[in-house]
Simulated assay, not measured.
Amino acid sequence: MNFASVRIITEDVDRLVKFYEKVTGISAERPAPVFAELVLPSCTLAIGHLQTVPLFGPGSAVAANNHSLIIEFRVNNIDGEYERLKSFVDEWVKEPTTMPWGNRAMLFRDPDGNLVNLFEPVTEEAIERFSRRG
């Protein structure tokens, strides 16, 4: 089995696409006005409009109502990313901080309130752990 994507359901696809294009530096593919994909080397971040939910089953998802998922991106220079994004991100949860598990991370919210974590392995153990993942 291969992990393929994470999909965010939103009422404003264009707003989230612009936000994640800025965060990732990747241009989204837009196969339909109600759907977009940001295809990264390790995974795809999909963004679907609330109108797409009935295709999966009525009431199967709710827009902008996430309280348990963190969308994470590994980066090469967390402090550089912070400088690049600090004027663009509206809601910061945590500025760059080294975590007990060896990653230097920062957390912020996207326009729908979803938590986003950018992190960089910085300790020898964390660097080794991620070097095995590719």
Rank of each mutant, 00 (worst) to 15 (best):
residue 1 M to F: 10
residue 2 N to T: 12
residue 2 N to R: 14
residue 5 S to L: 14
residue 7 R to H: 05
residue 8 I to W: 00
residue 8 I to Q: 06
residue 8 I to M: 12
residue 8 I to L: 15
residue 8 I to T: 05
residue 9 I to G: 01
residue 9 I to E: 00
residue 12 D to G: 09
residue 12 D to F: 08
residue 13 V to R: 00
residue 13 V to W: 03
residue 15 R to S: 11
residue 15 R to F: 02
residue 17 V to P: 00
residue 18 K to P: 00
residue 18 K to E: 14
residue 22 K to A: 09
residue 22 K to L: 08
residue 24 T to S: 14
residue 24 T to E: 06
residue 25 G to Y: 07
residue 25 G to H: 07
residue 28 A to L: 08
residue 28 A to N: 12
residue 28 A to T: 10
residue 29 E to P: 00
residue 29 E to T: 14
residue 29 E to V: 13
residue 32 A to S: 14
residue 33 P to V: 09
residue 37 E to I: 11
residue 38 L to Q: 09
residue 39 V to G: 05
residue 39 V to N: 15
residue 42 S to M: 08
residue 43 C to E: 01
residue 44 T to R: 10
residue 44 T to D: 01
residue 45 L to I: 10
residue 48 G to A: 15
residue 51 Q to D: 15
residue 51 Q to F: 02
residue 52 T to M: 14
residue 52 T to S: 05
residue 53 V to K: 02
residue 53 V to C: 02
residue 54 P to K: 09
residue 55 L to P: 00
residue 55 L to F: 07
residue 55 L to E: 14
residue 59 G to L: 09
residue 60 S to P: 00
residue 61 A to L: 05
residue 62 V to T: 14
residue 63 A to D: 00
residue 64 A to V: 03
residue 65 N to V: 04
residue 66 N to I: 10
residue 66 N to W: 01
residue 67 H to I: 05
residue 67 H to Q: 12
residue 68 S to T: 11
residue 68 S to H: 13
residue 70 I to G: 03
residue 71 I to V: 15
residue 72 E to F: 06
residue 72 E to D: 03
residue 74 R to C: 06
residue 74 R to I: 13
residue 74 R to M: 13
residue 75 V to M: 10
residue 76 N to M: 07
residue 78 I to T: 11
residue 79 D to P: 01
residue 79 D to Y: 09
residue 79 D to A: 01
residue 80 G to W: 13
residue 81 E to Q: 14
residue 81 E to H: 07
residue 84 R to N: 07
residue 87 S to P: 03
residue 89 V to D: 08
residue 90 D to F: 04
residue 90 D to G: 13
residue 91 E to A: 13
residue 91 E to H: 12
residue 92 W to L: 06
residue 93 V to A: 08
residue 93 V to K: 12
residue 93 V to I: 15
residue 94 K to D: 08
residue 95 E to F: 01
residue 95 E to Y: 04
residue 96 P to D: 07
residue 99 M to A: 13
residue 99 M to G: 06
residue 99 M to H: 05
residue 99 M to T: 06
residue 100 P to E: 07
residue 100 P to T: 09
residue 101 W to K: 05
residue 103 N to L: 08
residue 104 R to L: 04
residue 106 M to A: 08
residue 108 F to S: 05
residue 109 R to W: 01
residue 109 R to T: 11
residue 110 D to V: 04
residue 111 P to V: 02
residue 111 P to H: 07
residue 112 D to A: 14
residue 112 D to P: 06
residue 113 G to L: 02
residue 113 G to H: 04
residue 114 N to W: 02
residue 114 N to M: 04
residue 115 L to K: 09
residue 117 N to Q: 13
residue 118 L to C: 09
residue 120 E to S: 07
residue 120 E to G: 12
residue 123 T to S: 15
residue 123 T to Y: 02
residue 124 E to F: 06
residue 125 E to C: 01
residue 126 A to S: 15
residue 127 I to E: 10
residue 128 E to H: 12
residue 128 E to M: 11
residue 129 R to P: 00
residue 130 F to W: 10
residue 130 F to I: 10
residue 131 S to I: 08
residue 133 R to I: 11
residue 133 R to G: 12
residue 134 G to Q: 05
residue 134 G to H: 08
